[in-house]
Amino acid sequence: MKNILIPTDFSDNAWNALLYGISFFKKTHCTFHIVHINAINTNSSGEAAMYVSPDLLEKTILAESREKLKLLTKKIEQITLNPKHNFKTQAIYGFLTDQLKDEVKEKNIELIIMGTKGATGLKSVSIGSNTGNVITKVPCTLMAVPEDATYESIKEIGFPSDLNLAYDVTILDTIKDIIFLKNSALRLLYISSKGEKLSQNQLKNKNLLLDFFKETECFFHLVSGKKIDESVQCFTESRNLDMLIMVAKNLNFLESILFRPTVERISYHTKVPFLVIHE
């Protein structure tokens, strides 16, 4: 039984992420833990807001959240009766990443599914500050689902890497499980920003990856481009990829793809779901 955590703020974006997860795992026995976290706000100095008594919390904030979760459960029941799926809900008050860390540990969560909003209008992080915080601070594999993404099939998966680090077998097993589950092809992608050749270490890691995935339909692609994020976007669109997989272990490379100081246009990750795997 797979335990999947889905945070919700009851938005259309969060509902779409939930639908995507249900469809993605339609043939898998799962428990979906749907949580609404009433986040503690901070003031301009970075300090937490004033203390809320447990009684007031139960009678107001959490009570309202539980009612919304009941309505959400009824909505789910109207669209799916999959006997392989079980749904549990919970209302929480606290700091988002801290609460998610606790949930992951307590419920043996294997995957978090979150919705991402379009890049238009965002000023700091192109995938959204909440999703970005969870990716970097919560040690759990995360699937980020764009607001307009609909599940059809996962025929082609992109796996960009700078090939500087060797990956743990548990990470590669996770990728292989998805490939076999979805009968997908894997596209290993290396971006050469200056046209340089692979180093001996990079060649070694490339060959290790190709050897590990030799039982699958796996291909290696070397693409030249000055900007990593734009090159990944172009490759994703040209290959019509259905999903991207990245590894949190290589944080600098991950940030070069997902995070931008400013967002000038809607990027590839507003269209294609991506999976960030933690060790």
Score class of each variant (00 low, 15 high):
119 A>P: 02
89 T>I: 13
221 H>P: 01
12 D>C: 05
208 L>S: 08
10 F>N: 13
184 S>Y: 00
114 M>W: 11
199 S>A: 03
160 P>L: 12
129 S>H: 04
225 G>Q: 10
237 E>I: 09
209 L>W: 02
243 M>G: 00
69 L>H: 02
257 I>A: 08
44 S>T: 09
127 I>H: 06
250 N>E: 14
247 V>N: 09
253 F>Y: 15
188 L>W: 06
170 T>E: 15
105 K>S: 13
156 E>C: 00
143 M>W: 04
223 V>N: 08
273 P>G: 11
50 M>Y: 13
228 I>Q: 11
49 A>Y: 10
110 E>V: 10
81 L>N: 15
75 K>E: 14
270 T>G: 08
61 I>T: 13
115 G>E: 01
41 N>Y: 12
108 N>M: 04
49 A>V: 11
124 S>I: 12
162 D>E: 13
235 F>S: 02
278 H>Y: 09
42 T>Q: 13
31 T>L: 13
99 Q>F: 04
214 K>I: 07
23 S>P: 01
246 M>H: 03
81 L>K: 15
34 I>L: 14
45 S>W: 04
18 L>D: 00
65 S>H: 04
104 V>D: 05
259 F>P: 01
51 Y>P: 02
117 K>I: 11
261 P>N: 13
207 N>M: 09
239 R>C: 07
76 I>M: 10
15 W>Y: 11
86 N>E: 11
11 S>N: 11
244 L>K: 00
189 L>A: 07
252 N>W: 02
212 F>W: 04
136 T>V: 12
20 Y>C: 02
144 A>W: 07
28 T>G: 07
271 K>Q: 09
9 D>E: 11
258 L>D: 12
181 L>S: 09
16 N>Q: 13
56 L>Q: 06
11 S>G: 08
44 S>R: 11
96 L>W: 10
270 T>R: 06
90 Q>A: 09
12 D>G: 13
51 Y>E: 15
98 D>E: 15
47 E>R: 06
276 V>N: 00
99 Q>Y: 02
135 I>C: 08
127 I>V: 14
231 S>V: 08
51 Y>F: 14
200 Q>F: 15
163 L>H: 09
30 C>A: 08
239 R>D: 05
245 I>S: 01
190 Y>N: 14
3 N>M: 05
225 G>K: 10
162 D>Q: 09
269 H>I: 06
265 R>A: 07
46 G>W: 03
148 D>Y: 13
89 T>M: 09
110 E>Y: 05
184 S>A: 12
207 N>L: 08
271 K>A: 14
174 T>H: 08
177 D>H: 15
19 L>C: 07
78 Q>I: 02
118 G>Q: 05
17 A>H: 05
25 F>G: 02
196 E>S: 12
243 M>D: 00
73 T>N: 15
149 A>W: 03
173 D>P: 01
183 N>C: 04
183 N>P: 01
220 F>M: 06
75 K>Y: 06
259 F>G: 00
38 N>P: 09
37 I>C: 09
184 S>R: 00
264 E>W: 03
47 E>H: 14
214 K>M: 01
73 T>W: 12
167 Y>A: 02
11 S>T: 15
232 V>F: 06
195 G>E: 08
131 T>F: 10
142 L>Q: 10
90 Q>N: 12
28 T>D: 15
246 M>P: 03
178 I>H: 03
200 Q>Y: 14
170 T>A: 12
137 K>A: 12
266 I>C: 06
27 K>R: 07
158 G>E: 02
162 D>S: 10
253 F>R: 10
